[in-house]
Simulated scan of single mutants.
Amino acid sequence: MNQLLSTMIRSLVAAATFSVAAVGAHAQGATGNADAGKKKADMCIGCHGIVGYQNSFPEIHKVPMISGQSDKYIIAALTAYKSGDRKHPSMRGIAGSLSDQDMADLAAFYSTQGGQPVPDAPKAASAAVAALLEKGACVSCHGANFSKPIDPSYPKIAGQHPDYLFVALKAYTVEGSNVVGRSNPIMAGMAKQFKPAELRQIAKYLGSLDTELKTVPQSRFR
């Protein structure tokens, strides 16, 4: 049964990958320049360049670490905010102001700032959490160590802030809101299987893992 579920998910992932590629085709086609991205990151550093900084609207949580994510994931995320597939008022406003070249440059800048690769085998989860991860088939997309996704347009989630991971997972279950929600049929199907307390358990475990992700302190007044 688990093997059948994994096969079905991989088929859905393949279809979704084509969809993501179509949405972000223009930005993905631009060649990013990390030096140019550093000069364009002023709008980002007020949140993503401060260690421990918290988002206060529409929900309170630590802003995600993006240094060390792949360039293709950063572009995919910005594209989703720009199109409204990810609902977050301030991120949509910022992404909406970016050209394809801007996205590629910012992605190149942040993707070069990660830490050391993490072990292939993550620390063992409790039996309860392991069952939740298996039910969600999380490794099918995000990799066995949750830091080597099968497609670079998917995020590395090992070691990401647990409160952010919980809010992100919960967002896939929200419908009809103008300020909260994420449109992704695969993630929605996964997240809607779980109660909020179970999503918190998953997020807490993933957040405890070794990570390549970082918040690189930046001066607000550089």
Score class of each variant (00 low, 15 high):
residue 51 V to W: 00
residue 162 P to T: 13
residue 177 S to W: 04
residue 130 A to K: 15
residue 168 A to D: 04
residue 140 S to G: 15
residue 130 A to D: 14
residue 7 T to Y: 04
residue 52 G to T: 12
residue 202 I to T: 10
residue 175 E to A: 14
residue 103 M to W: 02
residue 186 I to L: 14
residue 93 G to D: 04
residue 45 I to D: 05
residue 48 H to K: 06
residue 183 S to A: 15
residue 168 A to W: 10
residue 222 R to K: 07
residue 117 P to R: 03
residue 56 S to Q: 05
residue 95 A to I: 00
residue 124 A to F: 07
residue 60 I to D: 07
residue 212 E to P: 06
residue 121 A to K: 10
residue 216 V to K: 00
residue 135 K to D: 02
residue 136 G to D: 15
residue 111 S to C: 04
residue 218 Q to P: 00
residue 178 N to E: 15
residue 11 S to A: 07
residue 9 I to P: 00
residue 61 H to F: 15
residue 186 I to S: 05
residue 131 A to P: 10
residue 126 S to I: 08
residue 71 D to P: 14
residue 57 F to D: 01
residue 193 Q to G: 07
residue 14 A to S: 04
residue 1 M to D: 07
residue 163 D to P: 01
residue 16 A to E: 15
residue 148 K to S: 10
residue 217 P to N: 04
residue 134 E to F: 00
residue 174 V to Q: 01
residue 169 L to D: 05
residue 46 G to K: 00
residue 63 V to E: 11
residue 40 K to T: 00
residue 200 R to W: 14
residue 45 I to Y: 06
residue 86 R to S: 10
residue 17 T to S: 10
residue 63 V to N: 12
residue 206 L to S: 09
residue 218 Q to H: 11
residue 169 L to I: 12
residue 133 L to C: 09
residue 90 S to W: 00
residue 168 A to C: 06
residue 62 K to A: 12
residue 64 P to L: 07
residue 192 K to T: 10
residue 119 P to S: 14
residue 214 K to F: 04
residue 20 V to R: 05
residue 44 C to I: 07
residue 29 G to L: 03
residue 86 R to F: 11
residue 207 G to E: 10
residue 30 A to I: 04
residue 52 G to W: 02
residue 178 N to Q: 13
residue 138 C to T: 11
residue 144 A to D: 14
residue 67 S to T: 07
residue 175 E to Y: 04
residue 144 A to G: 09
residue 54 Q to V: 05
residue 77 A to Y: 11
residue 16 A to R: 13
residue 17 T to H: 03
residue 211 T to A: 09
residue 160 Q to S: 09
residue 206 L to K: 11
residue 88 H to A: 02
residue 217 P to H: 02
residue 125 A to N: 08
residue 187 M to F: 06
residue 178 N to V: 11
residue 201 Q to L: 11
residue 118 V to L: 06
residue 105 D to M: 06
residue 214 K to N: 09
residue 9 I to R: 01
residue 201 Q to C: 07
residue 140 S to I: 13
residue 18 F to L: 05
residue 193 Q to E: 12
residue 32 G to P: 00
residue 52 G to L: 04
